[in-house]
Design a binder for these strands. Structure first.
Lengths: 386, 386
DNA sequence: GGACTTACTTTTGGTGCGAAACAATTGCTG
DNA sequence: CAGCAATTGTTTCGCACCAAAAGTAAGTCC
């Protein structure tokens, strides 16, 4: 058994659920795992043995000593060997590549970004390989690479279509694998973030879970039965067609009253610019709205109402246990969160279960982390599913 | 209580899937079943044996002889003993009780309705018992009763709250069981219809399936992973809070622009009455609209656009493989189906998978049949769980 | 009538699980 | 300190389920 390389998989279903639970929820004893997974104690012995032998799990020396002076045989917590392997996550934007190194537990241990001056596939792959080499200096035991890219990705390997990179059918995984010798997983950025949140984030252990991202565009991810539901139009501008308020504003990017026109950062900036003539950043607009500037406040309020309506509709139709709002454009919630919540209430039945709404401001490193988590998921736990 | 107390034994998961597949999809040979269920031929022998011994399935004499002169050993189709037991389904409305007798396969073999002149629980139970006695004359081998009622139902036994019957915590199942000696399953009418359609109807074998009913009110059913998702507000007037068009009409029943105000039969009649002063039935309004009457056409067109928007939103957020439109108020589709489809297109991305929309005009006997199917499901196959 | 084809059955072995007995390690009690 | 209770983890056993392979049955084709 060579340690560090991907000598782990494949895992059986039971083993995988154990590995995931330990990966996600810190160290856990066998008894605790049996309780969580609804299995017998005997099964846990059986399932954990090969995981320990393969080096993915280890018994750790009872870290929770404080005030835990219970009777009986002390439990023997199991933990993943968090630094037995590191993972790389990249997020490619139009003009930058953001990179992170994470542990098996998806903790970011290093960041490294580089501007992107070309969109030529080979040169982009060179940039990624260069960044990998750079990061590998401090973290030699790299086990795999995840790459998130806006656009349509096939088979977790080929960028079928990316509008902003002007790519068509670029075998990015192969290109980077050739240069680095590491296994590579490519995925749509939103999909990767959704998978990451399903595993390690807000969607942990949930059966029905929705992710809505607001940034330069609108992203949507639906997780049912713990699995993300893929859809044909994802990351192809569906937000332009989500009509929230047919009498709403019209912007260059979206149809009248669409989620894109009402909510994305470019659209909000466009609206304020069109109304006042002044060009402001998104943050400035939020600050202006909070300070009482009427035009900014109107735009922000309208966006908040649109977001509330959208969240309520999703809740009404999908009934998710939780909705995660992520992206760079959720700063809205700080300024107009109350309006959002009021609008949700207006569009929901009073007896309906309250919407489990969670907001998480994300920067580009979070997107890169999402890609790294996908690499962990695919490479370590072998849950490569369509 | 997960035990169905019927004469049939509790089935294992494998047996149940076989039984359901034969129940739903006519006679099937073992080989065909193996293919459909993804099992080996040997497993089918094992699974079918107890089902045949228990009398639920029988080997039928190769009905499909026509032009089927294949080589090899002839297949031995299995079928349920469709008339080994009959099931009763009731739908209770404000002033009528609709009853049907169905086979195991949910084919309606008899109908019997009776006016409801009282809402007293005991007297309603008497009416149901009387109808049961009446129907039992021609169909002696009744195996169970399913009752569908508008309102909130707990544990498939107790009517927790029914606005139109003015009931609270009425143990209807017990009342009817006492009088008939038959096992009784009570369920919300929409829920029963959804379960029935999931099994025998439009939702057969689908993973994500939505039912939207339009009638006196709005009904919604969400099926994920083959299971209906219960929700707190079901049949408690949630349609009043589904705001489709905030500048839409206002009716006594619903909030401005709500699904109820735009779509239900009473609201459409109300709108026409308010606009023209003339009181027309729903069918008359549809006919008037088709004939070019401007006020009726406006109301119907607006309803069609609302329905299209609603269907598109559901498709965008839930991504069901199929949406079933049912109820007495889907006649709309005949007159303005084109508007509905256009509106759906407007609210969907061009690359998105086309919406699998199916329309099924239902009368009250279909609702009763839904209740009977639920009885079959719970009593015969013992798949009762929260 | 023999070769072939297809449907089904039986046998065998493997997997994954729970139940129960067993071993290990601690705290508590007298 | 011995004995006991409590708790965790291990081993063993048997059950339920399944697939693969080999065997049997029942027909068609030439």
């Amino acid at each position: 058994m060579t340690e560090g390389t991907a000598g782990w998989l494949p895992l059986s279903a039971g083993e995988r659920s154990v590995a995931i639970d330990v990966l996600v929820h810190g160290p856990l004893s066998r008894t605790e795992l049996a309780r969580r997974l609804g299995l017998s104690a005997g099964s846990l012995t059986r399932l954990t043995k090969p995981l320990i032998e393969s080096g993915l799990l280890v018994e750790v020396p009872e870290a929770d000593a404080p005030a835990e002076s219970r009777q009986g045989r002390p439990s023997q917590p199991l933990d993943v060997v968090a630094d037995s392997g590191f993972f790389l996550g990249f997020k490619i934007t139009e003009d930058m590549v953001y990179g992170v190194v994470t542990t098996l537990r998806s903790h970011i241990v290093a960041r490294h970004d580089r501007p992107l001056t070309t969109h030529d596939p080979a040169e982009v792959a060179d940039v990624l390989a260069g960044m990998t080499a750079e990061l590998a200096k401090r973290h030699p035991r790299l086990a795999g690479i995840g790459i998130g890219v806006g656009g349509f990705v096939q088979d977790r390997a080929v960028v079928g279509e990316s509008p902003f990179l002007l790519w068509r059918d670029v075998p990015l995984a192969d290109l980077v694998e050739e240069r680095t010798g590491l296994p590579v997983v490519v995925e749509n950025d939103v999909a990767a973030l959704v998978e990451a949140e399903t595993w390690f984030g807000a969607g942990r252990g949930l059966d029905r879970f929705v992710v809505l991202t607001i940034g330069a565009g609108i992203g949507y991810g639906l997780v049912l039965g713990g699995k993300r539901v893929p859809f044909a139009e994802e990351d192809r501008g569906f937000g332009r067609h989500w009509i929230v308020d047919s009498s709403g504003p019209l912007t260059p990017d979206g149809r009248r009253g669409s989620a894109v026109s009402l909510l994305t950062i470019p659209s909000i900036r466009y609206q304020v610019r069109a109304a006042t003539g002044g060009d402001h950043t998104y943050e400035e607009i939020l600050a202006l709205a909070a300070a009482g500037d009427p035009m900014s406040a109107r735009v922000v309020e309208e966006a908040a109402r649109a977001l509330g309506a959208l969240v309520a509709q999703i809740s009404n139709f999908v009934m998710p246990q939780k909705i995660l709002l992520a992206g760079e454009g959720v700063g809205l919630m700080d300024v107009a969160g109350k309006t959002v919540e009021e609008t949700i209430r207006e569009h929901r039945h009073p007896l309906a279960a309250p919407v489990g709404l969670e907001t998480k401001v994300s920067d580009f490193h979070d997107w890169a982390r999402g890609a790294a988590v996908l690499a962990i998921k695919v490479l370590v736990l072998g849950s490569a599913e369509a």
